[in-house]
C-alpha cells in the first residue's frame, strides 16, 4: 500500500540518508521525496510503497516510527488515503 513517511526535527547532515537506508533495509521502495529546511527545522515527506499485508505493515510502521526518538526526530508513517480524503474534494 502507498504510505507517507513524514520526518520533522532539528536539521543536521544525514537525516535523509538515515531514513532512506532504513527503508532500503526493509525493502520499502521510495516513490517520491520532498524536503525543506526552514530556519533550523528539517521537514521531509516521503511517499513509499509498503507491504499490503497488514501485519508486515504494522511491524514496519512501528520500527520506522521508533527510529525517530534516539535521533530527536518525529517520524510518522501513515496510509496515504487520509491525505487524499482530507484535502481533495
Amino acid at each position: 500500500m502507498r504510505a507517507v513517511i513524514s520526518v520533522v526535527g532539528k536539521d543536521r547532515p544525514g537525516i535523509l540518508a538515515y531514513v532512506a537506508t532504513n527503508c532500503a533495509n526493509r525493502n520499502i521502495n521510495i516513490v517520491d521525496v520532498t524536503q525543506k529546511v526552514l530556519q533550523d527545522l528539517f521537514t521531509m515527506i516521503m511517499i513509499v510503497e509498503m507491504p499490503e499485508d497488514l501485519d508486515s505493515f504494522h511491524r514496519m510502521q512501528e520500527e520506522i516510527e521508533a527510529l525517530g526518538e534516539p535521533q530527536g526526530l518525529k517520524i510518522h508513517v501513515m496510509h496515504d488515503d487520509i491525505f487524499n480524503a482530507m484535502h481533495t474534494v
Binding site: 507517507v4 513524514s6 520533522v8 517520491d32 520532498t34 525543506k36 521537514t43 515527506i45 518525529k74 510518522h76 501513515m78 487520509i82 491525505f83 482530507m86 484535502h87
Partner: peptide, 18 residues
C-alpha cells in the same frame, strides 16, 4: 502541485499532533 501536497500532509500531521 507537489509543494501543495507536502503542505497538506504537514497540515494534517500538525492537526493531529498539536
Amino acid at each position: 502541485m507537489r509543494r501543495r501536497r507536502s503542505e497538506n500532509i504537514l497540515e494534517t500531521i500538525k492537526m493531529i499532533d498539536e
